[in-house]
Write a protein that binds this DNA or RNA. Structure first.
Length: 127
DNA sequence: TTTCTTACA
DNA sequence: TGTAAGAA
């Protein structure tokens, strides 16, 4: 991991700073954590400490919400991304190319952002 | 002062 | 999601 990545992953921001940076309420920020969308560290007194990566994550969540996605929809987006990353890691037993990954993700975006049925996202065969 | 958790006329 | 209450 590069030094840059390490710095971005250092949790040094209290929720108050995150509120100003994201223009979200503490309530909302904590709620996203409850939903497993972000997992900030805790310091001494059980206070949440966020990293720059967390900030990006939260801003991303905010954008998705503005685009009409609900929490469950966002969860699926991240689930999909992680799923694709895993497959990418086992590049040998799968036949997915980078362009395939990009296409699948694109498809998911349109699918999910268009107010999809909660259970219609498991039909991602192998193209 | 700031943040945490819990709960809801 | 907001807000109040009590604790840390």
């Amino acid at each position: 991991m590069s030094e840059k990545e390490l710095r971005r992953s250092l949790s040094v921001l209290p929720i108050g700073t995150v509120m100003k940076l994201t223009d979200l309420s503490a309530r909302q920020i904590r709620y996203y954590e409850e939903q497993g969308l972000v997992m900030p560290e805790r310091n001494d007194g059980n206070r949440r400490m966020y990293s720059l990566n967390d900030i990006d994550r939260i801003l991303e969540i905010k954008d998705y919400l503005d685009d009409g996605l609900n929490i469950s929809g966002i969860k699926e987006v991240y689930k999909k991304q992680q799923q694709l990353e895993d497959e990418k890691k086992n590049h040998q037993d799968t036949q997915l190319t980078d362009s395939d990954v990009r296409r699948i993700l694109e498809d998911e975006f349109l699918h999910i952002s268009g107010l999809m049925p909660p259970s219609s996202t498991f039909n991602n065969q192998k193209l």
